[in-house]
C-alpha cells in the first residue's frame, strides 16, 4: 500500500454528541489510518470541501439528531457534483434501521448503528475503500 487510508470523520447538522465520532476517529487512527475530524456543526458543503481539500478516501458521517435523511444525501450529491463520487461515504449514530435502505440508495455505503464494534467499521473500510 502506497499511502495510508485517509478518513474524514464529520459531524453534519447541529447535534453536539460526538463521543461516537471521537471514539471512531481514534480507533481508525490506532488502526493506522490518517484521520481528520471536522468538529461539530458542519454543513454538507463544509464537509465536502474538507473532503476534497484533504484528498480523503473515506467520509464517515456521525449524527444523532435525526436529520440524517436530510443531510447525508446532500453530502453524496455534493461529492458527485465535485467529481469525487469515488470517496467511500459511511454513516453512524442514532439512525433507525428503517432508514438504512433510503440512505444506501443515496450512496451511503453502510450505516453503523449503536453498539457496532469499531472493528466492524474498520473492516468495512479496508474492504471497500477505493484508494487513489
Amino acid at each position: 500500500m502506497d499511502r495510508k487510508i485517509r478518513v474524514l470523520v464529520a459531524k453534519p447538522g447541529l447535534d453536539g454528541h460526538d463521543r461516537g465520532a471521537k471514539v471512531i476517529a481514534r480507533a481508525l487512527r490506532d488502526d493506522g489510518m490518517e484521520v481528520i475530524y471536522t468538529g461539530l456543526r458542519q454543513t454538507p458543503e463544509q464537509i465536502v470541501q474538507a473532503a476534497i481539500q484533504e484528498d480523503v478516501d473515506v467520509v464517515a458521517l456521525s449524527i444523532l439528531s435525526g436529520a440524517h435523511n436530510h443531510l447525508f444525501p446532500r453530502v453524496t450529491e455534493l461529492l458527485k457534483e465535485k467529481g469525487a463520487e469515488d470517496v467511500l461515504v459511511i454513516g453512524g449514530g442514532v439512525i433507525p434501521e428503517a432508514d438504512y435502505g433510503f440512505l444506501m440508495s443515496k450512496g451511503i455505503a453502510a450505516v453503523f448503528g449503536p453498539g457496532t464494534p469499531t472493528k466492524a467499521t474498520i473492516d468495512f473500510i479496508r474492504e471497500h475503500v477505493r484508494q487513489k
Binding site: G13, L14, D15, R41, S65, G66
Partner: peptide, 21 residues
Amino acid sequence: LPTQIGYDSDHPLSQGEVGKV
C-alpha cells in the same frame, strides 16, 4: 437544536433539524 443554538426555524442551518430532538 435550532432553538438550543439560537437559530430560527427558517435559518439555513436549521434545515432538517426543526422539531427533531
